[in-house]
Design a protein around this nucleic acid. Structure first.
Length: 886
RNA sequence: GGGCGAUUGGCUCAGCGGGAGAGCGCCUCGUUCACACCGAGGAGGUCACUGGUUCGAUCCCAGUAUCGCCCA
C-alpha cells in the first residue's frame, strides 16, 4: 500500500458522517463479543445497569466513557474482553411512570388489579422503555449486545429466587415487625439509604405532661405523634427526675396515663432531659419501648392519616399537627414554641415526600455476617478501591450496617417467594420447586427492593446459579466502574451477595470484582451540581450531535481524576472537537505527504535526530499511558496524549519533517515517511480507547487495515510483553531537540517583539553554531524560523543569543531599539532574581551542610549560568544605550 | 452532632519537600501549500490565614476561617 492509493481526507472531521456507520460496522464484525472458550485471559466489566425508565444523561456518559476506554484498551491488549450491558427494572421508578400514565385516564393500579398492572408495565417497557440502549450506541459503547440482560428477565429472576431461598434457609433473611422508613405517597417501605435527609424548617413545641409535682415537659417536632405516646423517658442518673421514674403521668388530650421510664439512651443535656416515647412511630422510641416492654400504639395509617379515635381521626398528619397543637394550647399544655426550628427530616429519594417512620411487618436481610466478609475482602486486598481514600467510607458503612429492609409494597418487581398456609405455615420456595397447593395458601404480596436483584448483577448476568461457560470464563469481573454516590446502594451490596453466592469458588475467586474504580459527579462549568431546577444540566446527545461522540468523551475523560467530580462546559467540548480535528489534519498532512504506516521503522542508522527524538518521546508517552490506565488516571491519559499529539507531533515534528518530505533527497524523505507513519499509527492506537470514532476513520485510512479496534496495543499487552518493538529512550536526541526548541522559541520571541511577521524571510547568520550541539541542525533552525541566507548586502542589525548561538539578523527596517531594550531588561531582571535566589541558598551554611550534594551542585550550576546571563544581557543592554529600567 | 475532603492565575482543575503548571478565557501579530475547529508570541498567581517542623514548605504537622460531601 502506498500513499497514492488513498483518497484525500477533507480538511475537517465531520463526526456525523462517521459515527453511526462505524458503530454498526463494529457490531456486525462481532468485535464486542468475546468467546468464553478463548485461551486469552478474561477482562470483564458489567455495566452499572441504567434504569429502564432512564435516558442517557451526562453521568452515564462519563461512566460509559471511562468503562469503554478501559475495555477498548484491554481488547487491543489481547484480553478476552466482555463489557456486559443491561438494564435495571427500577421498581418504584418504573411503577410510578406507569401509574402516572394510568392516572391520565383516571385509573389507579388497583383498578387494573395486580396481574393486569404488571402486564401493563411489561408492555410499557416493550414500547417506551430502554431508550438508553440506543443512546449508548451514539456514545460508542463497545458492549456485547448478544449478552444484554434485564434484572427481571427469566434468568435473573431465577437467580433472585435462588439466593433468596439460600439466605432464608441459612437464617439470613427474616421477617419482623420493625420501624421502617415509609413513604406515604409511594405506599411502600424504603431502606435507610433510600431516604435523603435535609435540614428543614419546622417547629419545636414543648408540652407539659402531667400536673403539679408530677409535671414533666417534653419537646417534639412532631406534636401529633403524642397521640401514640406510651411513656416518657429520662436518663437514669438525672437528679431532676429521680422521684418520677416508675410513676404514671397523665398524657394530655387522651385521658391515658403513661409511665416514666429511665433509659440510658436519653440525652439529659437535650431540652428538659425528658423525652416522649412513641414506639410505633419513631425508631429510637421503638428501641426504648422494647427495652421497657412498652406497648406500641399505631396512630397513623399507611397514608399518614390519623387513626387514633377522637377528634383528630381522619386528619392527614400535616393537618393533625396544628390541630393537636391548638388543642394542647387550649388545654394550657404548651410551655414553649420555637419556630422556625431547623431539624433533619427524611424524604423519599424517589418522590421527595416526607418519610414517616412506621411500625410494620417487613422482610430483612441479616447483614452482619455478610457485611463482615464484604469488609474483609477490601481489608485484605482481594478487592481494591480506587481512589484508596474512598475505602474509608466503604468501611464506615459496611462495618456498621443495619439490617436491610428488602420488602417493598409494590407490584413491579421480584415477588417474595414465600407462601403462607392456612394453618400459619410459612414456606419459602426455590426456583425449581412448586409453590404449595391447596386452599388458603397465599404468596407474600410484596416484591423485593430493586437493589436486591442489582446486587446479583456481576454473576446473575453470567448465568448463575447454573455453572455456565460464561460464569467460569468471566467471573470474577475485573473492575467495577461507577460513581461514588452509589457505593452503598450498589457496590457494597454486590460485595455482600457476590461473596456469599460464589463462596465455594474460594476467597480469591468469589469476589464480584477485583477493583472498584470510583468516579465523581459531572458538574457545570462553575463546579455546581447539575440539576433541573438550577437549569444547568447538559444533554450528552446534544453534544454528540453538535461536536461528536469523541469530543464529548474526551471532555469527560479529560476531567476524570479518581473519585473526583468533573466540571464540563460547552467551550470545553468545542476544545475537544478541535483536538479531534487536529488529529484529523495531522493524518491528512501525513497522507498528502505519503506517510507509510505498518512497515516498521527504518534502520536506526538512517534516522534523523528529530526522528529519534519523536520516537523516544512516543516511547515515554506510551509507558505513561499504560501506567495511567492501570491507575484509572483518565485525566492524565488524556493530558499526556493531548500534549504529545498537539505540542510535540504537530507543532514540532511535522514542522521539522516538512522540509524533508518536500526536499530533493528522496531517500531521506522515505525515512521520514516511514517514521511519520509509524508515529501516527501508534498514536492513533494509543488514543483510540478515548476517541474511538475519529481514530478508526484515520487509522484505517492511514494503514489500509481492517480496524483499529483489533489492532495491537502499542504498549504492554496481555503477558506484560509488547507486540512490537519497544521505543527506547534516546536522551541524546531529546537533549538536542530540546536545545533546538529553546533557540527557536527565543528567536521567535525576538521576532514577535520586533514586530516581524511570522512568515517574513529575514536574512540571518548563526554565528558560533558550529561549536554547539546544534551544529547539525542549522538548516532545520533556519527553516523553522524563516531565516534567509546572508547575501552580499547582509548587514546584521540585531542579534539574539541562546544555547551558545548568536543569531544575527538583518531586519531591513532596522531595529526597534525600545522594544529590544524592554525585552533585554525583562530578561535581565529575571536573571538577576535567579542569581539572588541561588546566592542566598549557597550563602547558608546549614544548606551546604545538610542539603543533598546534588541539590547543592544544582544551585551552583544555576548560579553560574545565571551570572553569565546577567553579564551578557547587561552588556547588550548597555550597547543599546539602555539601563535596567528600560 | 460525628466523619471526610477542599481552599493554587478570570473560570475549571493538576501538582504535594528543593527554581509555580494545564485547558478554556484574555492581549498582540499573522491569508507560510495539514488544520483559523489554525499558527507565533505575551500578560496574569506573596499556592486561604496563623503558627510549627526542616538547611529549605504550595507540598508535612497544629490551629483558624470559608466551602463542599457523606453519615446521624
Amino acid at each position: 500500500m502506498t500513499g497514492s492509493d488513498r483518497v484525500e481526507l477533507p480538511p475537517q472531521y465531520v463526526p456525523a458522517e462517521v459515527e453511526s456507520r462505524r458503530y454498526e460496522g463494529w457490531v456486525q464484525a462481532g468485535y464486542f463479543t468475546p468467546d468464553p472458550a478463548s485461551a486469552a485471559p478474561a477482562y470483564t466489566i458489567v455495566i452499572p445497569p441504567p434504569n429502564v425508565t432512564g435516558s442517557l444523561h451526562v453521568g452515564h456518559a462519563l461512566d460509559h466513557t471511562l468503562i469503554d476506554a478501559l475495555v477498548r484498551r484491554r481488547r487491543m491488549q489481547g484480553y478476552n474482553t466482555l463489557w456486559l450491558p443491561g438494564m435495571d427494572h427500577a421498581g418504584i421508578a418504573t411503577q410510578n411512570v406507569v401509574e402516572r400514565e394510568l392516572a391520565r385516564d383516571g385509573l389507579s393500579r388497583h383498578d387494573l388489579g395486580r396481574e393486569a398492572f404488571v402486564e401493563r408495565v411489561w408492555r410499557w417497557k416493550a414500547e417506551s422503555g430502554g431508550k438508553i440502549l440506543g443512546q449508548m450506541r451514539r456514545l460508542g459503547d463497545s458492549v456485547d449486545w448478544s449478552r444484554e440482560r434485564f434484572t427481571m428477565d427469566a434468568g435473573l429472576s431465577r437467580a433472585v429466587q435462588t439466593i433468596f431461598k439460600r439466605l432464608y434457609d441459612d437464617g439470613l433473611i427474616y421477617r419482623a415487625q420493625r420501624i421502617i422508613n415509609w413513604c406515604p405517597r409511594c405506599l411502600t417501605a424504603l431502606s435507610d439509604i433510600e431516604v435523603d435527609h435535609s435540614d428543614d424548617e419546622g417547629e419545636l413545641v414543648s408540652v407539659r405532661y402531667g400536673d403539679g409535682a408530677d409535671a414533666v415537659v417534653v419537646a417534639t417536632t412532631r406534636v401529633e405523634t403524642m397521640l401514640g405516646d406510651t411513656a416518657v423517658a429520662v436518663h437514669p442518673d438525672d437528679p431532676r427526675y429521680t422521684g418520677l421514674v416508675g410513676r404514671g403521668i397523665e398524657l394530655p388530650l387522651t385521658g391515658r396515663t403513661i409511665p416514666v421510664v429511665a433509659d440510658p439512651h436519653v440525652d439529659p443535656e437535650f431540652g428538659t432531659g425528658a423525652v416522649k416515647v412513641t414506639p410505633a412511630h419513631d425508631p429510637d422510641d421503638f428501641e426504648i419501648g422494647r427495652r421497657h416492654d412498652l406497648p406500641s400504639l399505631v396512630v397513623m395509617d399507611e397514608r399518614g392519616v390519623i387513626t387514633a379515635p377522637g377528634p383528630f381521626q381522619g386528619l392527614d398528619r400535616f393537618e393533625a399537627r396544628p390541630a393537636v397543637l391548638a388543642a394542647l394550647r387550649a388545654d394550657g399544655r404548651v410551655v414553649a414554641e420555637e419556630r422556625p426550628y431547623l431539624h433533619a427530616v427524611g424524604h423519599c429519594s424517589r418522590c421527595g415526600t416526607t418519610v414517616e417512620p412506621r411500625l410494620s411487618l417487613q422482610w430483612f436481610v441479616k447483614v452482619e455476617p455478610l457485611a463482615k466478609a464484604a469488609g474483609d475482602a477490601v481489608r485484605d486486598g482481594r478487592v481494591r478501591i480506587y481512589p484508596q481514600e474512598m475505602s474509608a467510607r466503604y468501611f464506615d458503612w459496611v462495618d456498621d450496617m443495619h439490617d436491610w429492609c428488602i420488602s417493598r409494597q409494590l407490584w413491579w418487581g421480584h415477588r417474595i417467594p414465600v407462601w403462607y398456609g392456612p394453618g400459619g405455615q410459612v414456606v419459602c420456595t426455590g426456583p425449581d420447586s412448586e409453590p404449595p397447593q391447596g386452599d388458603g395458601w397465599q404468596q407474600d404480596p410484596d416484591v423485593l427492593d430493586t437493589w436486591f436483584s442489582s446486587a446479583l448483577w456481576p454473576f446473575s448476568t453470567l448465568g448463575w446459579p447454573d455453572d455456565t461457560a460464561d460464569l467460569r470464563a468471566f467471573y470474577p469481573t475485573s473492575v467495577l466502574v461507577t460513581g461514588y454516590d452509589i457505593l452503598f446502594f450498589w457496590v457494597a451490596r454486590m460485595m455482600l451477595f457476590g461473596l456469599y453466592a460464589m463462596a465455594k469458588a474460594g476467597p480469591d475467586e468469589s469476589v464480584p470484582f477485583r477493583q472498584v474504580a470510583l468516579h465523581g459527579l459531572v458538574r457545570d462549568q462553575f463546579g455546581k451540581k447539575m440539576s433541573k431546577t438550577r437549569g444547568n444540566t447538559v444533554d450528552p446527545l446534544d453534544w454528540i450531535d453538535r461536536f461528536g461522540a469523541d469530543a464529548t468523551r474526551f471532555t469527560l475523560a479529560r476531567g476524570a481524576t479518581p473519585g473526583g467530580d468533573v466540571a464540563v462546559s460547552e467551550e470545553w467540548v468545542a476544545g475537544s472537537r478541535n483536538f479531534c480535528n487536529k488529529l484529523w489534519n495531522a493524518v491528512r498532512f501525513a497522507q498528502l505527504n505519503g506517510a507509510l504506516a505498518g512497515q516498521g521503522l527504518p534502520a536506526p542508522g538512517q534516522l534523523t535526530v528529530p526522528d529519534r527524538w519523536i520516537l523516544s518521546r512516543l516511547g515515554a508517552v506510551t509507558a505513561e499511558v499504560d501506567e495511567f490506565f492501570e491507575q484509572f488516571e483518565f485525566a492524565k491519559v488524556c493530558e499526556a496524549l493531548y500534549h504529545f499529539a498537539w505540542d510535540e507531533v504537530c507543532d514540532w515534528y511535522l514542522e521539522l519533517a516538512k522540509p524533508v518530505l518536500t526536499g530533493a533527497d528522496t531517500a531521506a524523505a522515505l525515512v521520514t515517511r516511514q517514521v511519520l507513519g509509524e508515529v501516527l499509527d501508534r498514536l492513533l492506537r494509543l488514543i483510540h480507547p478515548v476517541l474511538p470514532f475519529v481514530t478508526e476513520e484515520l487509522w484505517t485510512a492511514l494503514t489500509g487495515r481492517e480496524s483499529v479496534l483489533v489492532a495491537d496495543w502499542p504498549g504492554q499487552v496481555v503477558d506484560g510483553a509488547s507486540a512490537e518493538p519497544v521505543l527506547a529512550a534516546d536522551p541524546a536526541a531529546e537533549a538536542e531537540i530540546a536545545a533546538l526548541m529553546r533557540l527557536v522559541t527565543e528567536v521567535r520571541r525576538f521576532r514577535s517583539d520586533q514586530g516581524l511577521r511570522p512568515g517574513q524571510q529575514v536574512p540571518a547568520r548563526l554565528a558560533g553554531v558550529g561549536s554547539t550541539p546544534l551544529a547539525a541542525h542549522e538548516s532545520r533552525i533556519r527553516a523553522l524560523l524563516r531565516l534567509g541566507e546572508t547575501g552580499e548586502r547582509f548587514t546584521p542589525t540585531a542579534s539574539v543569543q541562546a544555547e551558545g548561538v548568536t543569531v544575527e539578523l538583518d531586519t531591513a527596517a532596522g531595529l526597534d531599539v525600545a522594544a529590544e531594550r524592554r525585552r533585554l531588561a525583562k530578561d535581565l531582571a529575571a536573571a538577576r532574581a535567579d542569581v539572588e535566589a541561588a546566592e542566598r541558598k549557597l550563602a547558608t551554611r546549614a544548606f551546604l551542610e545538610r542539603a543533598p550534594a546534588a541539590i547543592v551542585q544544582k544551585n551552583k550550576d544555576r548560579l553560574a549560568a545565571a551570572r553569565d546571563e546577567v553579564g551578557r544581557l547587561a552588556e547588550r543592554l548597555a550597547a543599546l544605550g539602555g539601563d535596567e529600567t528600560a
